[in-house]
Nucleic acid binder design. Structure first.
Lengths: 218, 218
DNA sequence: GACTGTGAAAGGGTTCACAGCT
DNA sequence: AGCTGTGAACCCTTTCACAGTC
């Protein structure tokens, strides 16, 4: 399939074809009128725009179950990420191979970051250690942090932090599950609490990844 | 602090106070004019609306690093989730304790789900096993699935699936990182590709959790 | 006086619909 | 004829601003 139309892509993604065309147009005019988009060229242009054509060295700090899971995660390499080092504070971990790579001690953190030109760090430590690790990463030159620890990190201006809370997705499912569990019961409960019954909107999927639950006026 | 104003909450959350009041108003009128919101009452009402006051038994299928990390994750219990069982296809895993709970074999899957009234399942298996596990979960009565495997699951109507891709958050950081890495370079590259230079919007944080990156017209 | 709840205005994103190119 | 690229219309969300309540 060398070429694809906005209609086909939109159907596959579950969105309106006009939206898809307009979105693509912000990246440039990569389509051909009367024909569609050249698949290979389009993939390249989008990859480039998203930064997938670059090589991003990352360090993972905190090699517990989660850190090890991340180190073994196959999806990183294919998206342009290269795990430059695994770092843990436990001296007993040092030298142990995880995902075919020896764990290094926290003492080496600054050296690893500067030698590899790392600008993205992943924190998978316990909550108590996260802020301190974060500060060391930032001081060493990291400007983007992905935080899996259940803490809100404070960082200086210019540093990006994204927090992944593994329970939030479960909460979203539970929220919908609650709504599924019979409207009668929900309405009865709502009435008992002297609350106007509320209806779930946006329950359907917009794209491959659903939206957050939204409570809308009836 | 028995009471809070919309202004205080909005400042803490980084949103407009009118938006916060309007959002709350969709849940009902839980505030008091001239006073604010009673913290305890508000927390209860929001918890109830989000389904946090219910007990949700969940099963985790696939007890590798990620499954173990999820089993050990402290955030679940505090949000009303109870890990009813850990399930793995490897007979060698059966009976081994993970997070203080014996791993059970996949053979028991249907029994576990019906006996515990489980409606939410977490899939942390390798990609190859995910669809099959998914089908067994659904057949056994699960109606919400949280999928950590790098596969798109197909499910019957009425079943909710949310996919967590651990590399997407990294991609978002890399996207911003790319933009940080000097506008001159980016513009030069864009010009070389015969593309109008594009500027990142929505780079700032709206709430505690940042938005997806958006490419907007200049 | 202080603060909520909410109509109305403003703003932003999505969809329509069609001009323009192949 | 077929499909992109995009101005304009539309619609939904956010913000303003103030009436209503304590």
């Amino acid at each position: 399939m060398p070429t694809v139309s906005s209609e086909e892509l939109a159907a596959a993604a579950g969105v309106n074809s006009a939206k898809l065309r307009k979105d693509f147009s912000y990246l440039g005019s990569y389509g051909t009128r009367g024909v569609g988009y050249d698949v290979e060229y389009l993939v390249y242009q989008i990859s480039r725009e998203l930064g997938l054509t670059q090589d991003w060295p990352v360090v993972i700090v905190g090699i517990g179950n989660l850190g090890a899971a991340l180190a073994n995660y196959g999806g990183f390499a294919s998206r342009g990420f290269r795990v430059a080092a695994l770092i843990d504070a436990d001296p007993a971990m040092a030298g142990k191979p995880v995902a075919g790579m020896p764990v290094q001690h926290t003492d080496e953190l600054e050296k690893i970051i500067s030698e590899n030109g790392v600008s993205i760090g992943v924190i998978a430590t316990p909550a108590g250690a996260a802020q301190q690790v974060c500060e060391r990463l930032v001081a060493a030159g990291v400007t983007s942090i992905l935080n899996f620890a259940p803490t809100v990190l404070s960082v200086p201006e210019g540093v990006d932090v994204r927090k992944v809370d593994l329970s939030i997705e479960l909460q979203i499912l539970a929220f919908h599950e609650q709504r599924k569990a019979g409207e009668e019961a929900a309405v009865a409960e709502a009435a008992a609490a002297v609350v106007p019954p509320v209806r779930a909107a946006n329950h359907g999927r917009k794209g491959p990844d659903g939206d957050l639950p939204a409570v809308m006026p009836a």
